[in-house]
Design a binder for these strands. Structure first.
Lengths: 167, 167
DNA sequence: CCGGATATTGACCAGGCGTTCAATGTATTA
DNA sequence: TAATACATTGAACGCCTGGTCAATATCCGG
């Protein structure tokens, strides 16, 4: 049963999607190369062809999870809201809603966090991603403080960003 | 190299302690019967003699982790503090300190929580333990509210307990 | 239509896992 | 001391894992 050829990018995307589905059900430790291959309808050898090792695949999965949980998305409809404070509140609400609608991603993030306590590379990548997330928030909170100084007397941008990021 | 005999309780305690040490380093999924046995200086066969299966051992480990994280301990020195509110604050501080000094236990608790999303038995046991913890807190918060109604006008015991338990 | 490049398959390997169990050691009792 | 009960060991089993690789299928440019 020979499978058709596909482009590098298509296959990688397909395999990572399968890895996400498998990990959401079995956890990161339960993620096996063979289970991912079966889910994607491919042979396990092919997974090793596109991802040199299981570790690389887990790394790609981490990137997907981070993109789903720790990338600040300023969508067009939110960006169009007039009023600095209203816009900020809408963004916060959007973030909360986005996370609450992807519980699997949040759970996997927690699993990766736990993994990071044992794996320095994972820990470093998560720290970096969170730092970026925090920095993006800091830009917005600084803007809010500039526009509405009265509403947050005595609050620093960093302080507000920390509270906002901790949900 | 024949090992000496030991009482049922001694051996079980010894094995669970080894399991805790191993899991703290490698995570729950990395916990193998052989690693636990080696850590305890015993043969892996003996672990199966005292714990019918790996699952039972993990269950015993969960009990230990819950005891370290989710059992409200009202120590004598705290119980002796006069003043309901002061006593409550001291207890809160003690709980925070206790948890911050056992990061491995907290991490393992999180790992078990993630495991519980896949394992109904684990989820049920954790829910039960947290319910007990919450109930113990509720007793104390009710007492605080009775003694100092002015300080918490409009706050219900359940509400205060929920906030206190969420740390 | 042919030939080189590459994507895909599946058999195979070594190693680690949980579990079983016959053999052997140690403690206890008569 | 002899007999009984029980704790302990380590070899063995079947299974699954991540990884390798020769064979094969597919695609694409000449």
């Amino acid at each position: 049963m020979p499978g058709k050829k596909a482009s590098e990018e298509t296959r990688r995307e397909q395999i990572v999607a399968a890895a996400y589905a498998v990990a959401a059900r079995t956890g990161i430790d339960g993620l096996t190369v063979r289970a991912v291959a079966e889910r994607a309808g491919l042979s396990h050898g092919l997974v090793h062809f596109h991802f040199e090792s299981r570790n690389r695949l887990v790394g790609a999965l981490l990137e997907r999870v981070l993109a789903l949980t720790s990338v600040l998305e300023v969508s067009a409809d939110v960006a169009g809201i007039p009023g600095t404070l209203d816009r900020f509140h809408a963004l916060l609400r959007r973030e909360m809603e986005r996370l609450s609608q992807a519980p699997a991603a949040v759970r996997l993030f927690l699993e990766f966090w736990a993994l990071g306590t044992r794996d320095p590379a994972v820990r470093a990548r998560i720290s970096e991603a969170l730092e970026g997330y925090r920095a993006a928030f800091r830009v917005l909170t600084a803007e809010v403080l500039r526009a509405e100084p009265a509403a947050f007397a005595g609050v620093t941008p960093d302080g507000l960003a920390a509270v906002a990021v901790s949900f």
